[in-house]
Design a protein around this nucleic acid. Structure first.
Lengths: 202, 202
DNA sequence: TTTATATTTAATTGTTTGGTTAAACTTTAT
DNA sequence: ATAAAGTTTAACCAAACAATTAAATATAAA
């Protein structure tokens, strides 16, 4: 019974993720989610009392995958260059496997910031103090340009995430079909790594 | 009569922009737009046959402000460094005045890419060939690092736009109140300019 | 002044949606 | 075998929504 319960609930959550991530909360339809999960709406409501509770589950799962990966890379014991390289490569590969998640999170947090605030009250995200200290030490030693390490982190994440978030726009404006866009992303990993590391050095 | 017609239609469009940009197409309500414009729903439909037509108008106006500014800066006759500085400063200032527009466009293009495709069929966007050539010449002369100038353009735009698009997320994760976020953006202009120009040079 | 256009109010319409209900059936656990 | 939990079907509900209608009034143009 435990096995069966897991399977039905997980089927619902997987279907819901698919629909919510594609359409967003407001445009997603419970009827569609039920259909995708291969069950009826009554059962959907047996497991999740309402749309908002189901959404919360999907949202929380998405946040749990999106942020901790960044933090663990930034907080490793390696040197900055290696961490930046790791971050770009690992993160872009993660985004390739989950291309719609950042856009989904950004939009839904914008629509309802309380969702993230509430989540972080129970599962706080550590500030990447190691990376920050490493960078500040490098600035003091005259090795890196004097910018705020938080700005650097935001910039690196921006450069990784933005092409996924704005994918249709970039494809349309620059006339890239799907194959060309995938090459663009694959090439991008080394190119922005080079640009970032080069940019940090004085 | 012309004066009056402009005023009512423009009032509707302004109200619609406000609501669509904040809530997105799916969650925006015609009733709310009518209320914000200070008129009734029948009049709303007298001027715009349906929700989609009204949205198209707002969308097109937004696209018309978002992209051409980038292109005009990238295609000026100035040197690359000056153009990058101009782009960051001008663009961030534009975004400060219209903070929700990029997020709105990105989300709505993702939900319905045809809107942008259709728009660009009638109002094509030039590719910034001058900037591209300038960068490629610099690479050939051994002055800049060998990356694709399109990647550079995407990165610069990413660094300008992302903090606005992901503002609530960044504020929440880094614990910035509104004042601190505004300082962050103001500081960011010079910091990313420095980072970008430094990053380009070999 | 007359005609055309713009505007309003209040009510209505048809559809969609999230959610509920009841009863029957199936599966699982004891 | 019985009881509990899971699942289904079909119908229903109330609310919300975009859009419409009819009639009256106000404003602008000819």
């Amino acid at each position: 019974m435990i096995k069966k319960q897991y399977s039905t609930e997980q089927r619902i959550v997987d279907a819901a993720r698919s629909v919510f991530v594609e359409r967003g909360f407001a445009a997603a339809r419970m009827k569609e989610i039920a259909g995708k999960a291969g069950l009826n709406q009554a059962l959907l409501h047996y497991y999740f009392k309402n749309k908002d509770l189901l959404f919360e589950r999907v949202f929380q799962d998405a946040v749990r995958t999106f942020f901790p990966l960044i933090i663990s890379i930034l907080e490793s014991d390696k040197g900055i260059e290696e961490k930046m390289t790791d971050l770009v490569h690992t993160y872009v590969d993660f985004l390739k496997a989950n291309p719609h998640v950042p856009g989904f999170l950004i939009h839904e947090v914008t629509q309802n910031p309380n969702r993230l605030t509430k989540f972080l009250r129970t599962e706080a995200l550590p500030v990447p103090v190691k990376l920050i200290r490493q960078y500040q030490d490098g600035v003091a030693a005259g090795k890196y340009i004097p910018i705020d390490p938080i700005q650097l982190i935001v910039s690196v994440i921006a450069m990784c995430v933005f092409p996924f978030v704005a994918r249709p726009m970039i494809q349309t404006v620059f006339g890239l079909d799907n194959g060309a866009f995938e090459s663009f992303i694959e090439n991008r990993k080394d190119q922005i790594t080079h640009f970032i590391i080069n940019g940090m050095y004085r």
